[in-house]
C-alpha cells in the first residue's frame, strides 16, 4: 500500500459518502444517473467474487464489503425509496447502459489474464468500470446545471481514478514485476473520460461560480 493508492481508496470512499449524504439529506437523487449506479453495483459484485476465495487483508475485505453494500443501497434507494425515487430524472437518464455491459463482457471474453470464471468476471468489471460514468456524464450534460453535492461526488470519483494512475506509476517504478496492463490501460481510459468534467469543475471553482456544463 502506498500513499497514492490510499488516497485513491479514500477519495473513492469519500465520493460514495458524498452521494449517500446527498440522497439522505435532500431525500433526492436528482442529477444522479441510476444507470451509472447500477453499473457500479454490477462492477463491484463481479470484481469481488474473490471475497470467498482469497483473503488479502482486513482492510481489503472491509472495503470490498463497503463498496458492494453501498452501491446496492444506492440503487435500492433510487428504485424503491418512496421519496427518493420521485426525484429521479428518468427522462434525462436514457443512455443504453446494457450495451456497455454486453460490450464489456464480450471484451473480457477476448482479453483476460486467465480463462477462468473469476478472471473473466474480473476483467469484465475493469472494462465496465472504465465506461460506467458515461450515463452520469450524459445526464449532467443534458440537465445543464449541477448541484454542489453532485459536482463533488463526480470530482471525488475522478480524483480516485487519478490517484490510482499515480499508484500504478509508483508501483511500476518500485516493484520489479508490476505489470497489470488490463487494469492500467482501462484506468487511463476511465480517467480520460473525466477530463472534460474536470475542466469545467476547475473553471467554476476558480471563478467561484456554480458549476455549469455547456449544452
Amino acid at each position: 500500500m502506498n500513499i497514492f493508492r490510499l488516497a485513491g481508496d479514500m477519495t473513492h470512499l469519500l465520493s460514495i459518502l458524498v452521494l449517500l449524504l446527498k440522497i439522505y439529506a435532500t431525500k433526492s437523487c436528482s442529477g444522479i444517473s441510476r444507470k451509472t449506479q447500477e453499473l457500479y453495483a454490477i462492477v463491484f459484485v463481479a470484481r469481488y467474487l474473490d471475497l470467498f476465495t482469497d483473503f488479502i487483508s482486513v482492510y481489503n475485505t472491509f472495503m470490498k464489503v463497503v463498496f458492494i453494500a453501498s452501491s446496492l443501497a444506492i440503487v435500492w434507494c433510487m428504485r424503491f425509496h418512496p421519496m427518493v425515487r420521485r426525484s429521479y430524472d428518468r427522462e434525462l437518464d436514457t443512455f443504453r447502459h446494457y450495451f456497455l455491459v454486453g460490450a464489456s463482457f464480450a471484451l473480457a471474453l477476448i482479453l483476460h489474464e486467465k480463462f477462468t470464471v473469476q478472471e473473466i468476471f474480473w476483467a469484465f468489471s475493469i472494462y465496465l468500470e472504465a465506461v460506467a460514468i458515461l450515463p452520469q456524464l450524459v445526464l449532467l450534460q443534458r440537465s445543464g446545471n449541477v448541484d454542489n453535492l453532485t459536482g463533488q461526488y463526480i470530482f471525488f470519483l475522478g480524483a480516485y481514478r487519478a490517484f490510482y494512475i499515480l499508484n500504478w506509476i509508483y508501483r511500476y517504478l518500485t516493484e520489479p514485476h508490476f505489470t497489470r496492463w488490463i487494469a492500467c490501460v482501462s484506468g487511463v481510459v476511465q480517467t480520460a473520460l473525466y477530463a472534460d468534467f474536470f475542466y469545467y469543475y476547475f473553471i467554476s471553482w476558480k471563478n467561484n461560480s456554480k458549476l455549469k456544463l455547456p449544452a
Binding site: 474473490d50 482469497d54 470490498k64 499508484n167 514485476h177
Partner: peptide
Amino acid sequence: DQQESVKDEL
C-alpha cells in the same frame, strides 16, 4: 519466476 496473480487492489 512466479507471476503475481493476487488482486490486491480494489
